[in-house]
């Protein structure tokens, strides 16, 4: 196996309380290979989003990453970066798409301006260069580049989510962290977006850390999957194995919670 792109080792994160601390992430370790899609599944409160935030050091107090934890991206420990290095690292190396990402676009700026913001800050592009890059990125996510002068409210939810993904990919990050990226969208739009991301990662070679509670979707999209329960990674395997031969009781229980489309008819 090639060197992992992302290597999370013994990650432990506490939410500091007045009297007792809450352990949100408990000694979690996993690797993501270059070009791989790794999924983290679990229910609300299991710690999956806390991990997503920690990877870009976007976790906020009272969350505290405990000593002994390591988050290595291309061999470099993210936890050792200073503020300046961190600013360069975010977007450039690791980009994030959040659940309500479509609402994270600035409503009073044209789409073009939001791309320019990123491209100027990180790559020092001029407006003309940025416009060219914006058109290229919008085409990648099936949005007509002529619409770059529109405002976010002129797009549907699915299109806004695709624009956010295009901005994320504009700097050619090595890793894209997606935290429930399509949960607010209907299944057809969800499928369109994830299929597109899958094609793009083939083409561009980035890795994806994909977070959702929908195991069926996760098996379709991911190469490997980790199942989280109460801050611990209780099972980790290939998507096929998680589906065909789940080992942990909790994984089996999760599978049992999905009503099947063709089985399990109304009794």
């Amino acid at each position: 196996m090639s060197e992992p792109l992302l290597s999370v080792k013994n990650l432990t994160i506490d939410y500091i309380g007045d009297e007792t601390d809450f352990r949100a992430v408990d000694n979690v370790s996993f690797d993501v290979a270059p070009g791989e899609v790794f999924g983290l599944a679990g229910e609300s409160g299991c710690g999956k989003s806390t991990i997503a935030f920690a990877i870009s050091r976007l976790h906020r107090p009272p969350a505290l990453i405990r000593t002994g934890s390591e988050i290595l991206l291309d061999g470099r420990d993210v936890l050792d970066l200073d503020q300046k290095e961190l600013a360069a690292f975010r977007w450039r190396e690791v980009a994030m798409v959040f659940q309500s990402a479509m609402n994270s676009l600035n409503p009073v700026l044209r789409v073009e301006a939001q791309f320019y913001d990123v491209l100027k800050t990180h790559l020092g592009m001029t407006k003309v260069q940025a416009r060219e890059r914006t058109a290229e990125m919008l085409r990648l996510v099936d949005i007509n580049p002529d619409r770059m002068r529109d405002y976010p409210h002129q797009f549907s939810g699915g299109m806004r989510q695709r624009i956010v993904i295009a901005i994320c990919l504009a700097l050619g990050p090595k890793l894209v962290v997606m935290d429930e990226p399509t949960t607010a969208l209907d299944v057809v739009v969800q499928r369109e977006i994830l299929q597109r991301i899958n094609e793009l990662r083939r083409k561009l070679g980035f890795s994806v850390l994909f977070i959702t509670h929908d195991l069926g979707l996760m098996v379709q999209f991911c190469d490997r999957i980790g199942i989280m329960l109460g801050g611990k990674l209780v099972e980790q395997n290939t998507a096929q194995a998680i589906y065909r031969t789940p080992q942990h009781d909790y994984t089996k229980k999760l599978w049992a919670s999905f009503p099947s489309l063709h089985g399990g008819v109304l009794a």
Partner: peptide, 26 residues
């Protein structure tokens, strides 16, 4: 039919091309 084909289905993995949904068709 489109709606049903888009329901997450672990038997149809993207990598195996088992669930290709063409944007033109959609």
């Amino acid at each position: 039919r489109l709606l049903l084909s888009a329901v997450p289905n672990p038997d149809l993995r993207f990598e195996d091309g088992g669930s290709d949904m063409q944007p033109d068709h959609v």
